[in-house]
Each structure stands twice: as structure tokens, then as C-alpha cells.
Design a protein around this nucleic acid. Structure first.
Lengths: 146, 146
DNA sequence: TATTTGCACTTGCAATTTGCAAGCAAATTT
DNA sequence: AAATTTGCTTGCAAATTGCAAGTGCAAATA
């Protein structure tokens, strides 16, 4: 149960109340970069989130307008999760975390390459990825319209 | 006790292992923007961090090279905390969180004004604040040299 | 000199949150 | 019709958090 009590008027604090934990941004990462969009997809990520924690985080993120649920076109048993615009707008934050990581950690070569791309022109990178995510969002929205 | 086991090779996950909680970035915010630099300063922030959690977070941030301790020039009983370069480099992340907040939250007018400044020229903002923090860091380092 | 105050924690303990295993209903596949 | 998949929920032990009350040391005050 996510309570709604604000710790302070500080927007940083308010933001951390939404995604300031060890799991939320990883779910958002999976939606952004790895085309994961079902419960099972998130469960299968390398970090190994527990199923009850995943359910709790998905609920919180939805309540806060970061993600949205919709029917999966392939099956009624499946639920399709996608980023809402408010979630897509988290991209610059996640990008900067990756860039910071790049300075202080070692990491897989493919990720390093993507970060290099992003660093070359941050705004362009954000624009491109945002566009892709927005298109995907629209497709799924219309395809499973209710 | 902060353990060192990595959940995965993902740099985002590794980063969240360091500052992915409700408190760490608030301490860093206090060091960056509000000239807070003692234990008591952090305790007095609006969010009301508990004293054992503060001690635990300071320890973790120090172990991870985000902050550094030094002797306070005014009193031997006091400890002065400051951002290490690795901590100063978190500025772009925190700035982007503020910018995201600005789009989706209401907030105090003075903070809104600072964000407006930052948005006008992000790189300039980062350069300026980084410079100030680096100068402050050097001053305190030499003043209390050991 | 003795006492009080301030500072940076530590300790104890109850309450909350997390992690793991198992279970479950509805939908789908075989 | 039976087995499997999917998205959860439930139970419970373990870890983390939040709060109050110390603790040890140094500086200030009496």
C-alpha cells in the first residue's frame, strides 16, 4: 500500500516518494529499453524481483500515472503495461544515471556504446527515444482501445 | 550494513544500489544546494530523517566515495561532511529530477525559479554549480588539512 | 574543578517492508 | 479434458526502518 503523505514540499523528496527505491526505475528501464511489457517479462529480469514486490510496484507506478495497463492483443490472460507520458519523461533522469555510471563503473560493452551515443548529443537521444516510445504507446493504445 | 553484492551487471541497478532509496539523494541535495554539512544540519531537514538512518546513510555514501568526512574548523566535536567529486557528479541527475518535478508537481516559487534557470541552459547550470562546489570542497580540504 | 551542554553517533525494540515459497483463478494450449 | 501459462495473492521469516533513549567525547559555563 502506497500512502500519499508528502514528507515535505521539496520536489526531489516528492519524486523519491514515487520512484526512490531499488526497483521502480528498473521496471521503467525494462519498459524503455528492453521492450518488456508483461508481468512475466519484468519477473525475468536479471535482478530477480520478487513477485509480490513487482505487483506492489506496478500498482504504485500506475497510481502515480507513470505507467498504464491495457489488454494484451494476443491473449486475455495477458496484461500489457506501457509507459504513460509522465513515465516517458523520466528518460533524461535515467540517461543521466547511465552517464554517471559510465564515469565510475565498468559495464557491458553494448551499454557503454549506447551511453556514448547519448553523451554525444543528449537532446537528440532523448528526442529519438521519446519518439519511439510515444509511437509504441499510441499503437498499443489504439490497437487495444476500449 | 551496506553489502556489496551486485544484483546484476546493469549500471542502473548498480547505481540504485548506492543511492536508490528515499534518503540518500536528500542528503546530497542538502550538501549541494543548502550549504548543510554537519550531522545536525541533515537531521534538521524538513523530511525528518531518523538519526540511525542518517548515520547508516552517511556511512554508505562515504564507503561508496560519494561524500567525505573532515574535521570541522570550529570545533573538534564537529565533523564536516562534503561532496566528493563522485558526489558532485550526481548534479545532472538531481537537476533532471527537479526538471521532471517541475512538469508534474506544484512547488515553492523560489525552487521553480532556480529550475527555470537550469532549464534555460542545463550545461551552464551544471558547470556553475559544479565550480562552486569544487571551490568549496578545496577550501575546506586545505583549511582542515591533515 | 565540577557541571552542564552540544555533537555525532549507538543501542534497543516495536513496526513496517522485503524476500522467498506456495497457492490460485482465469485463460490458453495440448 | 488435462496441463500449462499468466498475473497476481497469501503466509511467514528475515531484514530494514522509525522512534526513544542512551553513550562517549569535547567545549563551555559555574
Amino acid at each position: 500500500m502506497e500512502t500519499n503523505k508528502k514528507r515535505s514540499d521539496c520536489p526531489l523528496s516528492n519524486s523519491l516518494d514515487i520512484f526512490g527505491d531499488k526497483w521502480s526505475l528498473l521496471i521503467i528501464r525494462d519498459l524503455m529499453f528492453f521492450k518488456k511489457c508483461t508481468y512475466k517479462d519484468f519477473l525475468s529480469s536479471a535482478e530477480g524481483i520478487a513477485t509480490n514486490i513487482l505487483a506492489s510496484r506496478l500498482k504504485g507506478l500506475e497510481e502515480n500515472g507513470i505507467i498504464e495497463k491495457s489488454a494484451h492483443p494476443d491473449s486475455k490472460a495477458k496484461i500489457l503495461y506501457r509507459l504513460a507520458p509522465k513515465g516517458i519523461d523520466l528518460l533524461p533522469i535515467i540517461m543521466e544515471i547511465y552517464i554517471w555510471s559510465d564515469k565510475y563503473f565498468t559495464m557491458p560493452a553494448d551499454i557503454k556504446e549506447t551511453i556514448k551515443e547519448a553523451k554525444k548529443d543528449k537532446e537528440k537521444f532523448v528526442r529519438q527515444v521519446t519518439k519511439e516510445l510515444t509511437i509504441k504507446m499510441m499503437e498499443k493504445k489504439t490497437a487495444t482501445d476500449n
